[in-house]
Amino acid sequence: MLRLDQLATRHVGPLSLTIAAGECVCVQGASGSGKSLLLRAIADLDPHDGEIYLNDLACSAQPAARWRASVTLLMAESQWWAERVGEHFPVGVDPAWLDGLALPKDALDWTVARCSTGERQRLALLRALMGQPAVLLLDEPTGNLDEQSARLVESLLADYRRCRQATLLWISHDERQAARIASRRFLLSDGQLTALPQ
């Protein structure tokens, strides 16, 4: 369970929200409304006021790296620092997941430079999943994907959520996608979340 308590960062908040384990919540809002800022604050990448709890354990009470390992932010644009894809996967990757995202078995042997934007985005998702986070903060994880790949990502994330009782906080611009994946939807505007009708 993820709980935001009076969380405030720059022009977002203070806002409070509780998301159950195994639940997927979608956040929508205009560009610049602070959706990404909200996720960055939850991942403790930006200074913020208020507190965030994961299963009643406060963010500030844990080492920052451990917090981010369990509350992992997947940024909108994937970033790579080594030459080969595999170097970003210290413990390898579940072959079933590669398959689930229509990536070939040898994808880890690729050089990052030869991957398309969409392939990188899917690989970045797998990289984040390999850390087995309890909470995934997803910043438009299908932003660079075609409809078919987007569906694969949605179903992989749904499986992950069910198997591990993971909490998903998902930013999406796509109304229909939001309706498909989320049990609750919120609109972020003027720094506040308003529940949207399902």
Binding site: L45, A65, L73, M75, E77, Q79, W81
Partner: peptide, 16 residues
Amino acid sequence: SKRAVIETRLALGQDW
């Protein structure tokens, strides 16, 4: 210039 890379690594749970 590598801010995004460094923050991605932090977000994955790496220490500074």
